[in-house]
Design a protein around this nucleic acid. Sequence first.
DNA 1: CTTTTGGTTCCTAATTTTAAGAACTAAATT
DNA 2: AATTTAGTTCTTAAAATTAGGAACCAAAAG
Lengths: 153, 153
Amino acid sequence: MNLTDKQRALIERIGVFQEKSGMQPVAGRIMGLLYVSDKPELTFDEIREALGISKSATSNALSMLQHLNRLEYVTYSGDRKRYFRLKLDKWRDLVLQGVESITDFSEMLQEVVAERTSETKEYNQNLLDVADFLKYLHTELPKLLTEWEQQKK
Amino acid sequence: MNLTDKQRALIERIGVFQEKSGMQPVAGRIMGLLYVSDKPELTFDEIREALGISKSATSNALSMLQHLNRLEYVTYSGDRKRYFRLKLDKWRDLVLQGVESITDFSEMLQEVVAERTSETKEYNQNLLDVADFLKYLHTELPKLLTEWEQQKK
DNA sequence: CTTTTGGTTCCTAATTTTAAGAACTAAATT
DNA sequence: AATTTAGTTCTTAAAATTAGGAACCAAAAG
């Protein structure tokens, strides 16, 4: 694969960044590699070799990344290999998907308040405020995405 | 402390939720306990006892949560104990703090593109789009918070 | 029908994380 | 000054995560 030192360093930094949001090291590095690599589509073996990792680690990380919707693979007729690539062209979907999960926490907060004593007025109101702001985000973030697309043109 | 079954279940759910964003189990449960507890301010020992955890686990988790800006403690004259509570009244600051960290990823993406081959036009443009949208979020999210506060009144 | 290729799964070793227990410290109380 | 209180730090055991190696499997090639 022949990566420069700069590229390797970037891959590691991206890897660490992803790890912070709960991704395992190998998976983070695969993300990094696909960001950085001159070829945006890499085969299983190119990935394995570029990062010097085992087949099992490669296989597991790739399938987890696909479940997380970060990755997909394409095939070409007459070629048995899978070509893995970031789902970069569909990053808007990923954003919207993240927006959806905001609701979960908001709902949990409302359950909390429902279960709380009504003695602690101010505290409960703060909790409800957070829940309400999250709901606001939930409706407004998709709009923000649309606005951004408008002003990009 | 005397928690109901419902309260204990909620604490665990909140705990698991926090764990998903990289928090350790005990820290997640402490967050949960403070959300749910009738008293919004609890002492070291009340926390330790309510969750049935050791002093060291309590101490470490509390100091980590303080570093993450999720928690603070207050004291009362004539009382040696610290009273720990969520920084709920300052949740806006926490949101804005999160907004700041968006920039980091955006900048990393720009570095990536700077380092990439210029052959992959579309790919690079996608990366720059993501970076640009993140910058857009960075400026717009604080406005969203202000707007929400306006319409709340 | 045998072999090769591309990848997955199972099992295990190594590393990391988590949290307990005991020893410790600083301030307040007696 | 001695003791108690409130919490921290150090060491270690247990549990969970991570990733390697080998065996395995299905499809394609020979």
